[in-house]
Protein backbone atom coordinates (compact mmCIF):
# COMPACT_ATOMS: atom_id res chain seq x y z
CA UNK A 1 0.00 0.00 0.00
CA UNK A 2 2.96 2.27 0.58
CA UNK A 3 3.82 4.38 -2.46
CA UNK A 4 7.16 5.92 -1.74
CA UNK A 5 9.67 7.71 -3.90
CA UNK A 6 7.47 7.78 -6.96
CA UNK A 7 9.34 8.92 -10.02
CA UNK A 8 8.40 12.47 -10.85
CA UNK A 9 6.68 13.66 -13.96
CA UNK A 10 9.22 15.00 -16.37
CA UNK A 11 7.33 15.48 -19.61
CA UNK A 12 5.30 18.39 -20.84
CA UNK A 13 2.51 19.30 -18.48
CA UNK A 14 -0.84 19.03 -20.14
CA UNK A 15 -3.72 20.01 -17.91
CA UNK A 16 -7.40 19.65 -18.48
CA UNK A 17 -9.31 22.92 -18.10
CA UNK A 18 -12.35 20.98 -16.89
CA UNK A 19 -10.43 19.46 -13.99
CA UNK A 20 -12.25 20.64 -10.84
CA UNK A 21 -8.93 20.83 -8.99
CA UNK A 22 -7.82 23.63 -11.29
CA UNK A 23 -10.37 25.89 -9.55
CA UNK A 24 -7.72 26.79 -6.95
CA UNK A 25 -4.70 28.48 -8.47
CA UNK A 26 -1.10 27.43 -7.94
CA UNK A 27 0.90 30.15 -6.19
CA UNK A 28 4.47 30.92 -7.13
CA UNK A 29 7.16 31.21 -4.49
CA UNK A 30 6.85 34.60 -2.91
CA UNK A 31 9.13 37.19 -1.32
CA UNK A 32 8.26 40.34 0.64
CA UNK A 33 10.62 43.32 0.52
CA UNK A 34 10.22 45.69 3.46
CA UNK A 35 11.44 49.27 3.08
CA UNK A 36 11.79 51.17 6.38
CA UNK A 37 12.12 54.83 5.50
CA UNK A 38 12.95 57.75 7.76
CA UNK A 39 10.55 60.61 6.96
CA UNK A 40 11.56 62.86 9.87
CA UNK A 41 12.00 66.63 9.39
CA UNK A 42 15.73 66.35 8.66
CA UNK A 43 14.91 64.45 5.46
CA UNK A 44 12.96 67.45 4.17
CA UNK A 45 13.97 69.01 0.85
CA UNK A 46 16.35 67.46 -1.63
CA UNK A 47 16.93 64.24 0.33
CA UNK A 48 13.27 63.31 0.32
CA UNK A 49 12.82 64.54 -3.25
CA UNK A 50 15.70 62.41 -4.45
CA UNK A 51 14.53 59.40 -2.47
CA UNK A 52 11.02 59.66 -3.95
CA UNK A 53 12.42 59.85 -7.48
CA UNK A 54 14.77 56.89 -6.97
CA UNK A 55 12.05 54.73 -5.46
CA UNK A 56 9.76 55.42 -8.42
CA UNK A 57 12.54 54.36 -10.79
CA UNK A 58 13.40 51.34 -8.67
CA UNK A 59 10.03 49.59 -8.85
CA UNK A 60 10.36 48.49 -12.52
CA UNK A 61 13.87 47.22 -11.77
CA UNK A 62 12.66 45.07 -8.89
CA UNK A 63 9.78 43.90 -11.08
CA UNK A 64 12.38 42.36 -13.40
CA UNK A 65 14.03 40.52 -10.47
CA UNK A 66 10.94 38.44 -9.72
CA UNK A 67 9.82 37.77 -13.29
CA UNK A 68 8.43 34.29 -13.86
CA UNK A 69 9.75 32.47 -10.81
CA UNK A 70 8.89 34.65 -7.84
CA UNK A 71 5.95 36.74 -6.74
CA UNK A 72 7.63 39.80 -5.20
CA UNK A 73 5.60 41.95 -2.81
CA UNK A 74 6.50 45.35 -1.41
CA UNK A 75 5.70 46.81 2.01
CA UNK A 76 6.82 50.34 2.91
CA UNK A 77 6.91 51.53 6.51
CA UNK A 78 7.70 55.19 7.11
CA UNK A 79 8.69 56.60 10.48
CA UNK A 80 8.80 60.15 11.76
CA UNK A 81 6.77 61.22 14.79
CA UNK A 82 4.38 58.38 13.86
CA UNK A 83 4.94 55.14 12.01
CA UNK A 84 2.81 54.50 8.95
CA UNK A 85 2.48 51.82 6.24
CA UNK A 86 2.18 53.12 2.70
CA UNK A 87 -0.37 50.33 2.03
CA UNK A 88 -2.30 48.31 4.58
CA UNK A 89 -0.65 45.08 3.38
CA UNK A 90 2.23 43.99 1.12
CA UNK A 91 1.39 44.79 -2.50
CA UNK A 92 2.44 42.70 -5.47
CA UNK A 93 5.22 44.47 -7.39
CA UNK A 94 3.02 44.32 -10.50
CA UNK A 95 0.38 46.46 -8.76
CA UNK A 96 2.65 48.66 -6.69
CA UNK A 97 2.60 52.44 -7.13
CA UNK A 98 5.02 54.58 -5.16
CA UNK A 99 3.31 57.26 -3.04
CA UNK A 100 5.60 60.29 -2.79
CA UNK A 101 6.62 60.78 0.81
CA UNK A 102 6.83 64.01 2.78
CA UNK A 103 9.20 64.69 5.66
CA UNK A 104 8.22 66.11 9.03
CA UNK A 105 8.59 65.39 12.76
CA UNK A 106 11.06 63.36 14.85
CA UNK A 107 12.72 59.96 14.22
CA UNK A 108 10.69 57.20 15.92
CA UNK A 109 12.85 54.36 14.69
CA UNK A 110 12.29 52.19 17.78
CA UNK A 111 8.55 52.37 17.15
CA UNK A 112 9.14 51.38 13.53
CA UNK A 113 11.10 48.32 14.66
CA UNK A 114 8.26 47.36 17.01
CA UNK A 115 5.67 47.79 14.28
CA UNK A 116 7.73 45.73 11.85
CA UNK A 117 8.13 42.99 14.43
CA UNK A 118 4.36 42.78 14.88
CA UNK A 119 3.63 42.65 11.16
CA UNK A 120 6.33 40.12 10.29
CA UNK A 121 4.34 37.07 11.33
CA UNK A 122 2.16 34.38 9.78
CA UNK A 123 -0.90 35.99 11.31
CA UNK A 124 -0.15 39.40 9.74
CA UNK A 125 1.80 40.40 6.64
CA UNK A 126 3.50 37.04 6.06
CA UNK A 127 0.34 34.97 5.91
CA UNK A 128 0.66 33.44 2.47
CA UNK A 129 1.39 29.70 2.53
CA UNK A 130 3.53 30.21 -0.58
CA UNK A 131 5.91 32.53 1.22
CA UNK A 132 9.10 30.55 0.77
CA UNK A 133 11.79 33.17 1.04
CA UNK A 134 12.92 35.09 4.08
CA UNK A 135 12.02 38.77 3.71
CA UNK A 136 14.38 41.50 2.56
CA UNK A 137 14.46 44.41 5.04
CA UNK A 138 16.01 47.67 3.90
CA UNK A 139 16.36 50.58 6.34
CA UNK A 140 17.06 54.15 5.16
CA UNK A 141 17.71 57.01 7.58
CA UNK A 142 19.63 60.27 7.81
CA UNK A 143 19.93 60.64 11.55
CA UNK A 144 19.92 59.18 15.01
CA UNK A 145 16.67 57.81 16.48
CA UNK A 146 14.84 60.15 18.83
CA UNK A 147 13.23 57.25 20.73
CA UNK A 148 14.55 54.13 22.44
CA UNK A 149 15.50 52.21 19.29
CA UNK A 150 17.26 49.52 21.32
CA UNK A 151 13.98 48.37 22.88
CA UNK A 152 12.42 48.11 19.41
CA UNK A 153 15.45 46.34 18.00
CA UNK A 154 15.44 43.85 20.87
CA UNK A 155 11.86 42.94 20.02
CA UNK A 156 12.70 42.70 16.33
CA UNK A 157 15.71 40.48 16.97
CA UNK A 158 13.43 37.94 18.67
CA UNK A 159 11.38 37.65 15.46
CA UNK A 160 12.48 34.61 13.43
CA UNK A 161 11.60 36.27 10.11
CA UNK A 162 13.97 39.09 11.01
CA UNK A 163 16.64 36.61 12.11
CA UNK A 164 16.60 34.83 8.77
CA UNK A 165 15.76 37.88 6.66
CA UNK A 166 18.24 39.73 4.49
CA UNK A 167 18.99 43.04 6.17
CA UNK A 168 20.63 46.11 4.66
CA UNK A 169 20.78 49.77 5.65
CA UNK A 170 21.57 53.08 4.03
CA UNK A 171 22.83 56.06 6.01
CA UNK A 172 22.07 59.39 4.32
CA UNK A 173 24.33 62.39 5.00
CA UNK A 174 26.83 63.07 7.79
CA UNK A 175 24.46 62.61 10.72
CA UNK A 176 23.54 58.98 10.02
CA UNK A 177 25.26 56.61 12.42
CA UNK A 178 26.70 53.60 10.63
CA UNK A 179 27.41 51.72 13.88
CA UNK A 180 23.77 51.90 14.84
CA UNK A 181 22.79 50.77 11.33
CA UNK A 182 25.21 47.83 11.62
CA UNK A 183 23.40 46.89 14.84
CA UNK A 184 20.27 46.63 12.74
CA UNK A 185 21.76 44.63 9.86
CA UNK A 186 24.14 42.54 11.97
CA UNK A 187 27.25 43.51 9.98
CA UNK A 188 29.05 46.58 8.68
CA UNK A 189 29.28 45.08 5.20
CA UNK A 190 25.55 45.46 4.69
CA UNK A 191 25.57 49.15 5.60
CA UNK A 192 26.23 51.74 2.92
CA UNK A 193 26.38 55.48 3.10
CA UNK A 194 25.34 58.23 0.69
CA UNK A 195 26.69 61.74 1.02
CA UNK A 196 25.17 63.20 -2.13
CA UNK A 197 22.11 62.94 -4.31
CA UNK A 198 23.96 60.93 -6.97
CA UNK A 199 25.24 58.48 -4.40
CA UNK A 200 21.80 58.13 -2.84
CA UNK A 201 20.32 56.97 -6.16
CA UNK A 202 23.19 54.56 -6.76
CA UNK A 203 23.14 53.09 -3.25
CA UNK A 204 19.40 52.54 -3.07
CA UNK A 205 19.43 50.74 -6.41
CA UNK A 206 22.49 48.64 -5.56
CA UNK A 207 21.15 47.53 -2.20
CA UNK A 208 17.53 46.96 -3.19
CA UNK A 209 18.25 45.10 -6.43
CA UNK A 210 21.09 43.00 -4.99
CA UNK A 211 19.09 42.07 -1.89
CA UNK A 212 16.05 41.16 -4.01
CA UNK A 213 18.15 39.01 -6.31
CA UNK A 214 19.80 37.13 -3.46
CA UNK A 215 16.61 37.01 -1.43
CA UNK A 216 14.58 35.39 -4.20
CA UNK A 217 17.10 32.71 -5.05
CA UNK A 218 16.60 29.10 -3.97
CA UNK A 219 20.15 28.44 -2.98
CA UNK A 220 22.13 25.59 -1.65
CA UNK A 221 25.25 27.60 -1.03
CA UNK A 222 28.73 26.27 -0.77
CA UNK A 223 31.20 27.38 1.81
CA UNK A 224 34.79 28.41 1.08
CA UNK A 225 35.81 24.73 0.84
CA UNK A 226 33.09 24.12 -1.73
CA UNK A 227 31.08 22.02 0.69
CA UNK A 228 27.33 22.12 0.84
CA UNK A 229 25.97 24.15 3.74
CA UNK A 230 23.21 23.10 6.10
CA UNK A 231 19.77 24.65 5.54
CA UNK A 232 20.20 26.65 8.70
CA UNK A 233 23.48 28.10 7.46
CA UNK A 234 22.13 29.16 4.09
CA UNK A 235 20.43 32.21 5.57
CA UNK A 236 23.59 33.40 7.27
CA UNK A 237 25.51 32.72 4.07
CA UNK A 238 22.99 34.73 2.05
CA UNK A 239 23.48 37.68 4.41
CA UNK A 240 27.28 37.38 4.02
CA UNK A 241 26.91 37.19 0.24
CA UNK A 242 24.74 40.29 0.30
CA UNK A 243 27.45 42.16 2.24
CA UNK A 244 30.16 41.03 -0.19
CA UNK A 245 28.17 41.94 -3.30
CA UNK A 246 27.10 45.30 -1.92
CA UNK A 247 30.67 46.23 -1.00
CA UNK A 248 31.93 45.09 -4.39
CA UNK A 249 29.30 47.08 -6.26
CA UNK A 250 29.71 50.14 -4.05
CA UNK A 251 33.47 50.04 -4.63
CA UNK A 252 32.88 50.17 -8.39
CA UNK A 253 30.64 53.21 -8.27
CA UNK A 254 31.56 56.74 -9.35
CA UNK A 255 30.75 59.56 -7.05
CA UNK A 256 28.05 60.77 -9.44
CA UNK A 257 26.67 63.98 -8.03
CA UNK A 258 29.57 65.27 -5.95
CA UNK A 259 27.64 67.92 -4.05
CA UNK A 260 27.51 66.61 -0.47
CA UNK A 261 24.10 66.30 1.18
CA UNK A 262 24.95 68.44 4.08
CA UNK A 263 26.10 71.38 1.96
CA UNK A 264 23.92 70.78 -1.08
CA UNK A 265 20.83 69.83 0.97
Amino acid sequence: MSKDNTKGYSGLLDFDDDDPLNATAVSKKSLVIFFLIDTSGSMKGKKMGELNTVMEELIPEIRRVGEADTDVKIAVLTFSTDVRWMYSQPISIEEFEWARLRADGVTSMGEAFKELSIRMSRGQFLNSPSLSFAPVIFLMTDGYPSDDYKAGLKLLKANSWYKFGLKAALGIGNEANDDMLAEFTGSKETVVHAYSGGQLAQMIKIVAVTASQIGSKSMTLSDENDKELQDEDVFAAKQTLLGQQIQELVGNQNDGDTVPFDTGW
Binding site: P20, L21, T24, A25, V26, S27, K29, N127, S130
Partner: peptide, 21 residues
Protein backbone atom coordinates in the same frame (compact mmCIF):
# COMPACT_ATOMS: atom_id res chain seq x y z
CA UNK B 1 1.22 20.99 -1.07
CA UNK B 2 0.39 23.74 1.44
CA UNK B 3 3.08 26.05 0.10
CA UNK B 4 1.62 25.85 -3.41
CA UNK B 5 -1.39 27.90 -2.24
CA UNK B 6 -1.80 31.64 -1.86
CA UNK B 7 -4.04 31.45 1.20
CA UNK B 8 -5.40 29.09 3.85
CA UNK B 9 -8.88 29.56 2.37
CA UNK B 10 -7.72 28.29 -1.03
CA UNK B 11 -5.99 25.37 0.65
CA UNK B 12 -9.13 24.33 2.52
CA UNK B 13 -11.38 24.87 -0.52
CA UNK B 14 -9.08 22.59 -2.51
CA UNK B 15 -9.71 19.79 -0.02
CA UNK B 16 -13.48 20.27 -0.17
CA UNK B 17 -13.22 19.92 -3.95
CA UNK B 18 -11.09 16.79 -3.54
CA UNK B 19 -13.72 15.40 -1.20
CA UNK B 20 -16.50 16.12 -3.70
CA UNK B 21 -14.77 13.92 -6.30
Amino acid sequence: LYTSFGSDNDFLDYHTILCSQ
